[in-house]
Structure formats: structure tokens, C-alpha cells
């Protein structure tokens, strides 16, 4: 019916919900991340053939891994209508703890790595406790936690870069099989599948969506809202810990501000992928789309040799477009 489109073109009040959702426009907007991704791949490829080489594809996969892990971590609190800004800082801090447990305490590298991940998990758990039991506002609580952890990392490293990582520790970030295909993305793929199963097929996943959608109703429906939120923050902390290990292993170094540069991208990725900041909406495939989109933008701009002064601006602009289109989608198609 042609009227569907006129209805779309006309702004309605905030109270007016979705209009006819089955139109082509609706479909396009629903899949905007993927369409935008394909378009950019084609554009970058046209600018520079190097973009389509195996080497570059491998590069994109590796780059997407760390961003993907931290993006998944950020997505979890968003699903329960909270936010955890401290995750990238947690990533850096916990990896330094892991490395120092090896170098200063002399623990075997595997144990040291697990210590790092455990610390990250505990920080996530602690954030969850503050937000539920102390009713702290997650935006502010995790912002302060972020500053604490960034400061703690600086104090731990005394401003130096940790580089004396054992070979076994950096293996996962360096190893490749036939033709230079890196191993590291396998971790990301396993995590993606695990998270997708968790959200789709478990009681916990269903509860996460319910809590994000309507916490009051979830409580009345017999869901332990606080517990679900704490678990969510804890898993997010765990993922940040794994991401920290991967990043250190890949870069073979831990800088005194390790992870901080991921903050904005880690938040942008899930949101671009359709995870609502109001909670209860979004899925893992969407997050993957957001992660790939951001990675392609970063890698692509570097490859077509945009002068470095413009990279930030153009990248930001592309993200802006993606988010704007998504906002339009939510407004008219729910």
C-alpha cells in the first residue's frame, strides 16, 4: 500500500509506535549496518586494490578481534539498560596485572594470565555490586572506575611499557597457520558463538532481555533483577580480561595507557550494531556488524592513504551516518 510510505515520511509524536514494518525501506534500514559495510568495502576496494588482498583481510580479522571482544563486553551492560565505561581501562589494567604476576611474582605464564582475567572479572563483579546494591548510577560509577583503573595502570607501569612477555604468552597473538591466517580471531569466533547461545538459548539470556526491557515487570515476573545485572557486569569484566590478554599478546607489549584508545569504538560498535542504550534490544550478529564496520573504516582509511589529519574526522563522520540511519529506523520501524 502506497500510504505506508507517506505515513513514514510524516513525523509523528513520540507516542506513536511503529508504522508498517514490512516495506523495502524498513528492510534496508534494518540491515543498514551490513549494507553500509558492503558499500564501504567496495568503495575502499575501488580506491586501492590492496584492500582486497588476503593479507589485508587477515589484518582486518586480527584488528576486529580485540575490538570485537571488548565490543561484546560493552554490549552486555547495555542490554540491561546500564553501561560500563570502565571496560577498556579494565582491559589494560588487568593485562598489566597478568604480566606482572609473571615477571614480578614469577608465576607460570598461564597462571599469571588467569590471574589477570580473574582480576578483570572481579572488577566487573564489583561494578555490578555498586550499581545494584548501592544503587549507584552506572554511568558515573564506571566512569570513576575507569579513571581509577587508568591511574592504577600508570602507577603500576610507572609510565613504562611492559615488553618482557614470555613467548608462550604472546603465542596466541602471533601464531598463524598455512598462508599466514592468524589464530587469534578463532577466540573471537568462539566467543561470538558462545554469547549468541547465551543470549538466545538460556534462561540467563532471556532474563537479560527482560530486565533491559522492563526491570519493574521483570521483578514482578519473578526475575532476580539485581542478580542478573551483577552477572551481566561480571561476564563483561571477564570478556574485557580476555581482550586484555589478546591485545597484549598481539602487540607483545603493554603500554601505560593500554586499552584507553578503545573506549569510544567499543561503545560505538554495539550501538551501531543495533544494541539500544535503553536496554532490552540488540543481538550478537548486530554487534559483529558494528565491529566489522568500524574496523573496515579504520583499516580502509589507512589503506587509501587519507592524510592522517583527516582520518579521525572522516571516520567519525561515517559512524555518525550509521548511527543517524539507525535512529531513523528505531523511530519509524521499532
Amino acid at each position: 500500500m502506497s500510504q505506508t510510505t507517506t505515513a513514514v515520511a510524516k513525523p509523528t509524536t513520540a507516542a506513536a509506535p511503529r508504522q508498517g514494518g514490512k516495506s523495502t525501506l524498513g528492510w534496508v534500514l534494518h540491515n543498514v549496518v551490513w549494507i553500509w559495510l558492503i558499500a564501504l568495502v567496495v568503495i575502499f576496494g575501488l580506491f586501492n586494490e590492496f584492500f582486497f588482498t588476503t593479507f589485508n583481510l587477515q589484518n582486518i580479522m586480527v584488528q576486529a578481534t580485540v575490538l570485537g571482544m571488548i565490543g561484546l563486553a560493552v554490549a552486555l551492560p547495555l542490554l540491561v539498560a546500564e553501561i560500563d565505561l570502565s571496560l577498556p581501562a579494565n582491559l589494560g589494567f588487568s593485562s598489566a596485572i597478568g604480566a606482572m604476576a609473571y615477571s614480578d611474582l614469577g608465576l607460570p605464564w598461564l597462571l599469571a594470565m588467569l590471574v589477570g582475567i580473574a582480576v578483570a572479572t572481579l572488577i566487573g563483579f564489583f561494578n555490578g555490586l555498586c550499581i545494584t546494591k548501592l544503587k549507584m548510577v552506572s554511568l558515573i560509577q564506571t566512569l570513576s572506575m575507569m579513571i581509577i583503573l587508568q591511574g592504577a595502570l600508570l602507577a603500576l607501569t610507572q609510565g613504562r611499557t611492559i615488553t618482557n612477555l614470555p613467548d608462550a604468552y604472546v603465542w596466541i597473538g602471533q601464531a598463524a597457520i598455512g598462508g599466514g591466517w592468524p589464530i587469534m580471531p578463532v577466540v573471537f569466533i568462539i566467543t561470538l558463538v558462545a554469547m549468541a547461545v547465551l543470549l538466545r538459548n538460556t534462561v540467563l539470556g532471556r532474563s537479560i532481555y527482560a530486565v533491559g526491557g522492563n526491570p519493574v515487570a521483570s521483578n514482578s515476573a519473578g526475575i532476580r533483577v539485581d542478580r542478573i545485572k551483577i552477572i551481566t557486569f561480571t561476564i563483561a569484566g571477564f570478556l574485557a580480561g580476555v581482550a586484555g590478554f589478546l591485545l597484549a599478546s598481539w602487540q607483545m607489549a603493554i603500554t601505560s595507557n593500554q586499552g584507553s584508545s578503545y573506549l569510544l569504538y567499543a561503545i560505538a560498535a554495539p550501538i551501531i550494531g543495533g544494541v539500544s542504550v535503553f536496554g532490552g534490544r540488540g543481538n550478537i550478529i548486530g554487534v559483529l556488524g558494528g565491529v566489522l564496520l568500524l574496523t573496515v573504516i579504520q583499516v580502509g582509511l589507512a589503506i587509501i592513504s587519507v592524510p592522517s589529519f583527516y582520518v579521525g574526522m572522516i571516520g567519525g563522520f561515517m559512524i555518525f551516518i550509521a548511527v543517524a540511519i539507525d535512529a531513523i529506523r528505531v523511530r519509524y520501524f521499532g
Partner: peptide
């Protein structure tokens, strides 16, 4: 405190009985 409006009818109906329709989580 009755409904999670953006979930489906089925998901809302089973919301208080999740343990009954699940095994080991």
C-alpha cells in the same frame, strides 16, 4: 509491572516459568 512490551507474546507468557521450560539453564 506486568509486561515486557518489546518481547513477544510467547516470551511474556513463559517469563515467570522459565525454569520449567529449561534444563540446566
Amino acid at each position: 509491572d506486568g509486561l515486557v512490551a518489546q518481547m513477544t507474546i510467547g516470551e511474556n507468557i513463559s517469563l515467570s516459568s522459565l525454569s520449567v521450560v529449561a534444563r540446566a539453564g
